[in-house]
Design a binder for these strands. Structure first.
Length: 725
RNA sequence: GGGCCCAUAGCUCAAUCGGUUAGAGCAUCCGGCUCAUACCCGGCUGGUUGCAGGUUCGAGUCCUGCUGGGCCUACCA
């Protein structure tokens, strides 16, 4: 019974590289699942692409001084390469921007219109800054002004980079546009909102209840909490880059252009990318057959940060249009993946460098990543674990099984597959093991238990090795009376190598192909059908040449790209692991020392660190600088703010007086370690109450590579109260 | 601040509805083997399930509090 299956992987945001945390969370499991379902004969369609709109991309592109298209193109290519490196094979991987995917704009707009027609969209007015010079609304990030909390003059409309607070742009003092330098005015703008509460009351809650017990517990818990507090969400923005809101393109009562909020248009990308694909295939009707098919099963592979979105919001959109789009069958979200004890962090270089694994077989990476997959809880990549998985599982268990089998056949049977005789009890047992393994692998993969599936594969390799040892063909072959028994053993082992090749195909497609080729089964499609069946015409042809005799000489393996390799799985030498660990220890030391950001190395394609830094602000006159009164001081007391998690209340000796200053550094310093710390304070700033405690100034600080605040200190020798010039 | 999740052997992870003596792999140690990538096979060792209470005939699992970590969200430095 074949099924129609749609699989999506979260759309990576085209604003930076992806790392193994992303891959192991949403791409590798999806790819394995897709290969698995195809092995079962299901009709599978696998879609992803880059998410290319939103304020972050708009801003970054403008900062970099490149066009939006060029900017997203760069990251699109980078991300695509990273995914190819681990063998992720989508049917289609494009994106959401118009130049890459001409179907997206139209479809996203259609969603908007359908939801509007169904009464799911509300429209509310709010005040937002508007540049009269440019005739356009300014997103909060493009407005700069004086922070109404700390007095910092270069605060952005959404957030103050100095004090770190999120701001309401309308309240900024002395606002100015960073786009044209003009003074913006507050003007009313109207935005559309999606009524999620209505979706919940009408059907979402019931639908979710019907899924109870089928989804992962963490996903269900999350959704249950969300359903209790669902409200309207704005779905439009005033931005120059994105999908224009229908009927709002500057024509509607002189209103400047609006675009769909990126969260709204991004998931529609799953559909539009698919639509683009089927049009290119010359089968445009296939798109709706799939996405509106009553029997279609839709699976969203995502990381845990995306649960609400794919289990609540996007289904509400799909259903709300009234167009009969298919709802997800399951949302197999993974938890987070860490790296040697810390979170992956691209900008600080705390990542697995692609060049570090560039020469490793794709399948070794895929297998190791799968065994470490954060299926039920956060998990971790360690280099030692990687080496252990590759060397112990792949090389020693599976690889060696293949090698010892083929070498034996070459050595004693002219490299030809021996005839199959009557099955001994042990032969039959192993055959049973093969069937069991095939059943287990299928069962686990159906349930998204990828780690367990790998364990089942290894367990089977183990059973084969045990069989080999018990049979002792190296003894039997030397005696004419038992030689036929050795032949039978090797025949069975050859069959089992073939079973293995099929079993591992979802996780290790390249090696699967390599093994089949070595057995003379070039082009055989992986399948679970009749797997392990000995006799009855299902087995390998007797007398067929395998291994080295097939390829002419050692090496006896040829990978799918036609390269000869000496072993199915080369081992990873310990020295390599040591080198990687050394790099990380150096990195950790530098980060802990707070030396600031640094390049991750020679990788030209790594995150452009410079682009992460704030752009240099506009030139100011000396008077402006001189207006800020900076003094040296010493922290006398420090305590946690009674009503705010992130704040510390400090008493600072400024020479002429002791002041209370509230600082947002609770995540960066403990109160104790700040006692006696020399600092630099702005002392002529208007006092401000921060959750009940008045702050009489602010302290200069910068961020380290981990994003933690670090106070600046004066040199020893300058007394408290000395002016900074 | 609100919501959710996690903490199990030296390491990485399991454990179905609350149910037998908490299991695997790796590492360590012991033994066997020589076809094979110094591999394979067998065996031993290793646990107060983060801490403190509670419910129950029975708790890794449920409840409360605490400690540490993560995700979302609010407020905000």
């Amino acid at each position: 019974m074949t099924e129609t299956v749609l699989v999506t992987s979260a759309l990576p945001y085209a604003n930076g590289p992806i790392h193994f945390g992303h891959i192991v969370g949403a791409y590798l499991p999806a790819d394995i699942y897709v290969r698995f379902r195809r092995m079962l004969g299901d009709d599978v369609h696998f879609v992803s692409g880059t998410d290319e709109h939103g304020v972050a991309i708009t801003l970054k592109a403008e900062q970099a001084g490149v066009g939006y298209e060029d900017y997203v193109d760069r990251w699109h290519e980078s991300i695509k390469r990273s995914l190819e490196h681990v063998g992720i094979e989508f049917d289609v991987f494009t994106g959401t921007s118009h130049h890459r995917n001409p179907f997206h704009r139209e479809l996203a707009q259609q969603f908007f219109l359908d939801l509007k027609a169904q009464g799911y969209l509300g429209k509310h007015s709010e005040e937002q800054f508007f540049s009269e010079a440019m005739g356009r609304f300014l997103p909060d990030r493009y407005v700069e002004g004086t922070c109404y909390h700390c007095g910092y003059e270069k605060a952005r409309g959404d957030e103050c980079p100095h004090c770190g607070r999120y701001l309401e742009a309308q309240k900024l003092k002395d606002p100015r546009s960073t786009l044209d330098g003009s003074t913006p005015v507050l003007k009313e703008t109207r935005h559309y909102y999606l009524d999620l509460g209505r979706a919940r009351d009408e059907w979402l809650k019931d639908w979710f209840e019907s899924k109870r017990g089928q989804w992962k517990p963490n996903v269900e818990n999350f959704v249950a909490a969300d359903l209790a507090d669902l409200r309207e969400r704005p779905i439009t923005r005033d931005l120059p880059w994105g999908v224009p809101v229908p009927g709002e393109n500057g024509s509607d009562d002189g209103e400047p252009g609006k675009v769909l909020y990126v969260w709204f248009d991004a998931p529609i990308g799953y559909l539009s990318i698919s639509k683009q694909y089927w049009h290119a295939q010359g089968r445009p009707e296939r798109f709706e057959e799939l996405w509106k098919g009553a029997d279609t099963k839709l699976y969203h592979f995502i990381g845990k940060d995306n649960i609400t979105f794919h289990a609540v919001v996007f289904p509400s959109m799909l259903k709300g249009t009234g167009q009969g789009w298919v709802l997800p069958e399951n949302v197999p979200a993974n938890e987070f993946f860490n790296f040697e004890g810390r979170k992956f962090n691209t900008s600080s270089g705390w990542v697995i460098p692609e060049e570090a694994v560039a020469d490793d077989p794709t399948d070794a990476l895929r297998y190791a990543l799968t065994t470490m997959m954060p299926e039920t809880a956060d998990s971790e990549w360690t280099w030692e674990e990687y080496r252990s998985r590759v060397n112990d599982d792949l090389a020693d268990n599976l690889g060696n099984l293949v090698t010892r089998t083929l070498r034996f056949v070459e050595k004693f049977f002219d490299g030809r597959i021996p005839a199959l005789g009557e099955l001994s009890e042990r032969d039959a047992e192993l055959q049973q093991e093969a069937r069991k393994a095939a059943a287990e692998v299928q069962e686990h993969l159906h349930a998204f238990r990828f780690r367990r599936a790998c364990q089942a594969m290894m367990g089977f390799g183990n059973a084969c090795n045990r069989y080999y040892d018990l049979e002792q063909p190296w003894v039997a072959v030397k005696d004419e009376t038992t030689r036929s028994r050795a032949a039978q053993t090797m025949r069975v082992c050859c069959e089992m190598v073939r079973v293995l090749a099929h079993l591992i195909a979802p996780v290790m497609p390249e090696t699967s192909t390599t093994l089949l080729r070595t057995l003379g089964r070039d082009g055989e499609s992986p399948s679970f059908e009749r797997l392990g069946e000995l006799g009855g015409g299902a087995g390998l042809p007797e007398g067929e040449i395998v291994g080295a005799a097939l390829t002419g000489a050692l090496p006896r393996f040829v990978d799918p790209r036609g390269r000869e390799i000496s072993a199915p799985f080369p081992k990873i030498p310990e020295a390599r692991i040591a080198a990687e660990l050394e790099r990380l220890h150096d990195l950790a030391k530098r980060q802990d020392a707070g030396t600031g950001k640094h390049s991750p190395g020679s990788d030209a394609d790594a995150t452009p660190v410079a682009a992460d830094l704030e752009p240099i602000a506009d030139e100011i006159g000396f008077e402006t600088f001189a207006a800020v009164d900076l003094r040296t001081g010493t922290i006398l007391e420090a305590s946690k703010h009674p009503k705010a998690d992130r704040l510390l209340v400090l008493r600072v000796d400024l020479g002429f007086e002791t002041r209370t200053i509230v600082a947002g550094v609770a995540a960066s310093y403990t109160p104790e370690e700040l006692i006696g710390r020399r600092v630099i304070a702005v002392v002529n700033l208007a006092p401000r109450k921060l959750r009940g405690v008045e702050s009489q100034g602010m302290l200069l600080a910068t961020d380290d590579a981990e994003g933690r605040a670090r106070f600046l200190s004066p040199d020893a020798g300058s007394p408290n109260g000395a002016r900074i010039r």
